[in-house]
Design a protein around this nucleic acid. Structure first.
Length: 293
DNA sequence: GGAATCATGTGAT
DNA sequence: ATCACATGATTCC
């Protein structure tokens, strides 16, 4: 092999193929679980059966940060910095439930559309939802879409795909589900490849939830890339300052992870309080954003 | 710094 | 009605 062979993978941007994530996931897990004894890079590499340099390389390619810098990026200290910086762009054009409207709400250009109350009550009845699994930078992604747009995005660790699918199907039990990898594949490229983010055609997203939930999710969409807010910030933003706990519940019910950036909601102390698809993944996404901001 | 405790709004049963 | 929460503030160690 010649010297060029080692740059066979394009250095531009993160590869959307999910191959690095399993490694990264375990590193993050070890670092945060045993943060008391601060395992060295060597110790981690040994545990994973890899050489330190190899590990370093994989991690940096994935995160845009060295493991050390990454670790720093997910500490309380840094999280607090993400918080204080920017207020939500208070109450920009509000959207009526059931009405659709475009808006520049995310670095990923998104138009969202909410279900009408009637459609919500039907629990997905009369709706056809197509779904498929695809590798993503954060593990296997389950993508769901109606003919109106993206309606669900979930993550699964290896072997947990069925559980993720069950979880998602429970939300709209009366919908008809059709496996359709081909159809969902187009969304994966749009969502996980940043090169496609700020381009011509906005990503269409369908918010299926109660009135309150949809308001919370719309609020989340306003948080810029690499920034974060607290649950009470969101509560304020939707005009119910005492409802921060309810906001937490609604954030937790977010069906379109990553696109609706529920990972950018933190506790007031800056602590990562919870994530439906695992705290490790929340750290991973936040850290990845820190490295790619 | 925690741990315990309270007020709290929403959504599911 | 009642219960479980991805909260937050307060009040103790």
């Amino acid at each position: 092999m010649n010297a060029l062979a080692q740059i066979d993978s394009p250095p531009i941007d993160v590869t959307p193929d999910g191959s690095d994530y399993e490694t990264v996931r375990r590193v993050i897990e070890m670092i945060t679980l045993d943060y008391r004894d601060q395992p060295s890079l060597e110790a981690i590499a040994f545990e994973l059966g890899q050489s330190p340099t190899q590990l370093q390389k994989v991690f940096t390619r994935w995160a845009g940060l060295s493991p050390k810098a990454f670790l720093q990026a997910v500490t309380l200290d840094h999280a607090k910095r993400l918080l204080g910086k920017e207020e939500l762009p208070l109450l920009e054009a509000s959207y009526e439930l059931g009405l659709s409207g475009p808006g520049r709400l995310h670095d990923l250009f998104v138009t969202h559309e909410a279900m009408s109350p009637g459609e919500w009550k039907a629990r997905g009845g009369g709706l056809t939802i197509r779904y498929g699994f695809h590798p993503s930078p954060f593990g296997e992604a389950l993508v769901m879409a109606t003919d109106r747009g993206l309606s669900g995005l979930a993550f699964a660790d290896l072997g947990q795909e069925q559980a993720a699918l069950d979880d998602m199907m429970r939300r709209w039990p009366n919908a008809e589900y059709v496996a359709d990898q081909e159809m969902t594949a187009s969304y994966v490229g749009r969502v996980f490849d940043r090169a496609n983010w700020s381009c011509d055609r906005p990503l269409k997203v369908v918010l299926i939830g109660t009135d309150f939930q949809v308001r919370v999710w719309q609020s989340l969409l306003k948080i810029p890339f690499g920034k974060a807010v607290t649950y009470s910030d969101v509560a304020n933003d939707i005009g119910q300052p005492t409802a921060s706990r309810a906001v937490g519940a609604a954030v937790g019910a977010n069906p379109i992870s990553f696109v609706v950036p529920c990972h950018r909601a933190l506790g007031k102390s800056g602590a990562l309080t919870g994530y439906h698809w695992g705290l490790t993944r929340k750290r991973a996404i936040l850290g990845w954003e820190a490295g790619n901001a």
